[in-house]
Nucleic acid binder design. Structure first.
Lengths: 338, 338
DNA sequence: AATCAGATTGGCAGCGCTGCCAATTTCAGT
DNA sequence: ACTGAAATTGGCAGCGCTGCCAATCTGATT
């Protein structure tokens, strides 16, 4: 007997009620441990549930419960990618809070494509979630319209550089860029280069770079040269890009990378090319991936509170407070490569 | 006006039907592009949808559609973690197929805890998915019971070393271990050690180790020594564990790691300690993470078809074929570290 | 002009569960 | 034994949508 048999019918709450000899609403109350019922009833119901192998149908439950505020225990989350550690971290931070509060989440991956993000937002909204967590502040007009029209709590996470829709949780990427530049300047580097990946897709990396060059320029030490690798960030892309950059501009004394993956690639290039770090060339990354702490020379990078951002985003989804921007900051890790 | 206003009511299909001046079922047909309707009707409906900002309620749709086979376009996926690249890869492989077929997926993360997996399976089943993808072959009795009772298609992915429930997609971890051992033996290594992480949680790593030691023993070159790091795998754990292992057993000439993260840590240890690779010590990993190809000396490792496994798992979810085991194999990458 | 297959359409009964409300039971305090 | 408040319980109307079926319309054919 399975779902494909033409006359298959799942066990329903009504079946349980019948077997237990109680009303449907009583079973519902017992199952949700809400309202009052006697110990005896609870026992009967538990027994019936066990003997029938009853599994509640959450679809029906949510539909029915959607009329009340307490109903929809569901949230939607949109992230650009799963390949970059950042996002799984954000997700697990959010999951820890969501689990605690008994929320389910439906996740959409936009693949750094704002058009696809708009589609995903529409799809997630059709689940009638109690709230939505999206990544970044940049969205298509259509996406913004849908988000506004939804009338639900929206949390934009990671980035605080710009106007948000409702709740914004994250840190300033621009400030990260500025601080990174300040750090390199303080260490005495003056011929500074940049190695990044496709910024049209990863807008946050673009903001860091903007802050970085801004500070350099203010200090009278403009960015010496830059190399942008096409496609997503990766160690291989970082290694190849640094190679190209140095071939063109050998006199650099420090390189700022769009993130740690790229920086790790750069590190490998230096090892392979026999360039002393940080004396011949300093390296600076972003994200503080776990792996960078295990390097022979810990990478100079910036640690972002990823899990905390995810957790805070989930936290704020629930409350009905006013719109606000929550800056969770970041830490600059000096490391040994810059 | 938003969801929290006491008298808020979402736009429903009935509202659209009224505005468009057609019946509800007609709107439903147009929206799902199913059945027949005139161009004129389609236009009216599209107009009404746009003007009202209507978003279909998938909860209701699935509930209503659940009676038919075509209804529930939903699948559940359970993975042990998001922190290990392997799982996001599996997920995106599955997503590519699921998207194509118009399926939604709900994901659960068990955190390598079989008890938690059982709970998650129950939770996912309550969404009445058309099928479920789980990780590995080991499950609690309770989980197995629920899976069997569900009557839906179950796909167990990654591991083919053991009896499956229904469809199994993956490769043999044991064979990976054996081939890895064979490779090291062929290269002439004879004092071989192992550095791993908590095997009680990562059962697949345990199977690889079993196959590995088995082959070594058969060759009359039993595993020389081993060091197990507590907790999850990471570069830091691998680095520290290799350090401990070598302190105790300095005469090793090769080390097999539970995966690339650990191996990368081992690589860093060798760099820091000035151990020549592979002459003084050979390193062998597992997973073929992208990053290992960017290393000065590409890591010797085994590439697993992660995206393909995810895609195949999703593919099989749909068909009604008989239970079977699908072995997608793997590639041994010689690299330059062994 | 009559006929008929095929295209188009609307009505309505559920899908399984929860919220509301009224009915019934229980029980401590007279 | 009697009373009122509190605890417990069941009935039933939806939640918003889809499937089924009968009704209506269209156009070509005879």
């Amino acid at each position: 007997m399975n779902v494909h048999d033409p006359d298959y019918r799942a066990v329903t709450l009504a079946d349980v009620a019948r077997l237990a000899g109680v009303g449907e609403s009583t079973v519902s109350r017992v199952l949700r441990n809400q309202g009052s019922f006697s110990k005896r009833t609870e026992g009967r119901v538990a027994e019936a549930v066990a003997s029938l192998g009853y599994v509640p149908n959450r679809l029906a439950g949510m539909l029915a419960g959607s009329q009340s505020t307490a109903g929809a225990k569901l949230v939607g989350i949109v992230i650009p990618s799963l390949a970059n550690v950042v996002f799984p971290d954000l997700l697990s931070g959010a999951a820890s809070v969501l689990d605690r509060d008994g929320f389910q989440s439906v996740i959409g991956v936009s693949d750094y494509d704002l058009g696809r993000e708009e589609t995903l937002i529409g799809a997630l909204l059709s689940w009638r979630p109690a709230g939505l967590i999206v990544t970044g502040l940049e969205h298509t007009d259509g996406a913004l319209a849908r988000l506004r029209a939804s009338g639900i709590r929206i949390v934009e996470m990671i980035d605080t550089d710009g106007p948000g829709l409702d709740i914004v949780v994250g840190f300033s990427n621009r400030a990260v860029g500025r601080d990174s530049a300040r750090h390199l300047l303080a260490r005495g580097y003056r011929r500074i280069g940049y190695v990044g990946h496709d910024v049209t897709r990863d807008l946050r990396a673009g903001k860091r770079l903007a802050g970085f060059t801004e500070t350099l320029t203010e200090a009278g030490v403009p960015l010496h040269d830059r190399e942008i690798a096409p496609g997503a960030s990766s160690a291989a892309a970082g290694r190849a890009a640094l190679d190209r950059l140095l071939a063109r501009t050998p006199d650099l004394d420090a390189v700022y990378f769009s993130n740690d993956d790229m920086a790790l690639g750069g590190y490998f290039h230096c090892l392979a090319a026999g360039l002393a770090i940080p004396d011949r060339l300093a390296l600076f990354g972003f994200n503080a991936l776990d792996i960078t702490a295990a390097m022979p020379q810990p990478l100079a990078t910036v640690r972002t509170p990823r899990r905390a951002i995810g957790a805070m985003a989930a936290e704020r989804l629930g409350d009905g407070g006013p719109s606000e921007v929550i800056d969770l900051g970041y830490d600059l890790i000096p490391g040994a490569t810059a």
